[in-house]
């Protein structure tokens, strides 16, 4: 019980403090971390729990971002419309991807997800009239919730924080439910799962569609936080960046995704002001994580917490 209260109170307090104290630039940056964190967390459900290595996850996130931006330009920035179109796009793209890729595994799965992702990139890059081509889409209307306009950095940050909280609860309930346990089973011993009567496809397909919905929800808000969506957001290198964020944060923990995206985007945002070679630093952090904390920063924090607890006891 105490642990549950702490789990709710700590992030809520941190979000409230940030909303009160941080300036607009930092608030937009934090919102971006949270949105990428949600997408990386949904990737964690696939990789960490299902052992399904994907290099096409940015297509779900970025595809939803395009859909939300296009819908908002057409019909206005109502939050329900924006989130709804993003979630639906993420789910549809994930379902299409699932039908094509989920009968293969390992290297083939990796390559197929990469190819599917690049097909989305091709559409985004070449369909100029709708997606703006290489220039992407700018000049989006402000988000609105009923009579309120959510255009300030603070409002967008709070919206992203709320979405992250909901996404985390949804992700956790999924992995704790029988379907989530079955997903772990398909990772650990797929043949045994088939012999127990589970359809591997049915289990993995559900996980992929859920991941699409979560990444889609995050992607939907991204253009409004970033004030722009371009083809880079669906490119396979963006998918690879998400995998790197996940490894740094910690595979299989869900909340590590947010730490990983904070570290990666922190380096990208702050170090790139000093040097063009910020990716070298990402690489260094990646290698150090893999060598010293194979289960990511999340596992390091867990070890630290247990030690402190033991010392306190």
């Amino acid at each position: 019980m105490k642990r549950n209260i702490a789990m709710v109170a700590l992030p809520a307090a941190a979000a409230a403090a940030a909303a009160l104290l941080a300036d607009d630039f930092v608030l937009r940056f934090l919102a971006e971390i949270l949105l990428f964190g949600i997408a990386v967390m949904s990737l964690d459900i696939l990789i960490g729990f299902g052992g399904l290595m994907s290099l096409g996850h940015a297509a779900l996130f970025g595809g939803a971002a395009y859909a939300a931006a296009i819908a908002a330009r057409q019909w206005g920035g109502d939050v329900a419309l924006v989130l709804g179109s993003g979630i639906a796009t993420g789910m549809v793209l994930a379902a299409l991807m699932g039908v094509v890729v989920l009968r293969s595994g390992h290297l083939f799965l990796l390559i197929l997800t990469l190819l599917m992702g690049q097909m989305v990139w091709e559409v985004a890059f070449h369909w100029r009239e709708v997606t703006g081509g290489a220039d992407g889409l700018r000049g989006l209307p402000a988000l609105s919730l009923g009579p309120w306009t959510l255009s300030t950095a603070r409002a967008l940050f709070l919206l992203a924080a709320l979405l992250a909280a909901v996404a985390f609860v949804v992700g956790r309930s999924f992995v704790a439910a029988p379907i989530g346990r079955a997903l772990v089973g398909t990772r650990e011993e797929p043949i045994r799962m088939a012999a127990l009567g589970y359809s591997l496809f049915a289990v993995r397909f559900r996980a992929l569609v859920l991941a699409g919905a979560l990444a889609g929800a995050a992607g939907a808000l991204f253009p409004f936080v970033n004030l722009y969506v371009g083809p880079q957001s669906v490119h396979w290198t963006q998918s690879a960046a998400m995998v790197i964020m996940l490894v740094i944060g910690g595979i299989g923990s869900l909340w590590g995704a947010f730490i990983g995206s904070a570290v990666y985007l922190g380096i990208q945002t702050y170090l790139s002001a000093y040097t063009d070679r910020w990716q070298l630093c990402v690489g260094l952090v990646f290698v150090l994580t893999v060598l010293l904390l194979p289960n990511g920063i999340a596992s390091g924090l867990r070890i630290l917490r247990d030690r402190l607890r033991r010392r306190g006891a």
């Binding site: 439910a177 379907i179 589970y198 289990v203 559900r206």
Partner: peptide, 13 residues
Amino acid sequence: MAVRQHAGDGLRW
């Protein structure tokens, strides 16, 4: 894991 599947709850959320 086996019991849930047999009960039809294997994919339940």
